[in-house]
């Protein structure tokens, strides 16, 4: 049983490959993607994705735009921003839109795993609450 289902989005193919290997080794289920568009496609294909690790700086649709789109289509999926340059602004921007947290690249793998675990837990908690709310609604209706 993996810790979480993670979509890893970065335009640097070797980086994605290595990270996939390393994170898989740490019991994360990794689905790689190399652009914002691809990320959205993968999200549709795999409804089980809980956390997205998203690079801020990408050609084409950049991290912030992708984040916006993800939050619109899949509001419950948690996003961790991975920023290459230390622009606090873009990270803060991401947080405002609804990212779970941000990390600087390259970061310690353990920290990353910890963050993903937190995010997944939060997501599950959210889902739990929603589930309960629905159940409650159904039960009250029946009553």
């Amino acid at each position: 049983m993996s810790i979480a289902n993670v979509l890893f989005v970065d335009d640097e193919v070797p980086f994605v490959e290595t990270m996939t290997k390393r994170l898989t080794r740490r019991d994360l289920e990794i689905i790689p993607a190399h652009s914002g568009d691809e990320a959205l496609k993968r999200l549709k294909e795999h409804p089980g994705i809980e956390v997205i690790i998203l690079d801020v700086k990408m050609p084409g649709m950049d991290g912030i735009e992708t984040l916006r789109e993800v939050k619109r289509q899949f509001p419950l999926v948690e996003v961790i921003m991975l920023t290459g340059h230390a622009t606090v602004e873009s990270a803060i921007e991401g947080m405002k839109i609804g990212a779970f947290d941000y990390l600087m690249k390259p970061s310690e793998i353990e920290i990353l795993v910890a963050k993903v675990t937190e995010a997944a837990a939060k997501k599950r908690q959210h889902e739990e609450k929603i589930m309960q709310a629905r159940l409650k609604a159904i039960t009250t209706r029946r009553a």
Partner: peptide, 11 residues
């Protein structure tokens, strides 16, 4: 420089 370095470190 940052991206290649990140890849190297991850490798």
């Amino acid at each position: 420089i940052n991206n290649p370095v990140a890849i190297m470190v991850e490798e």
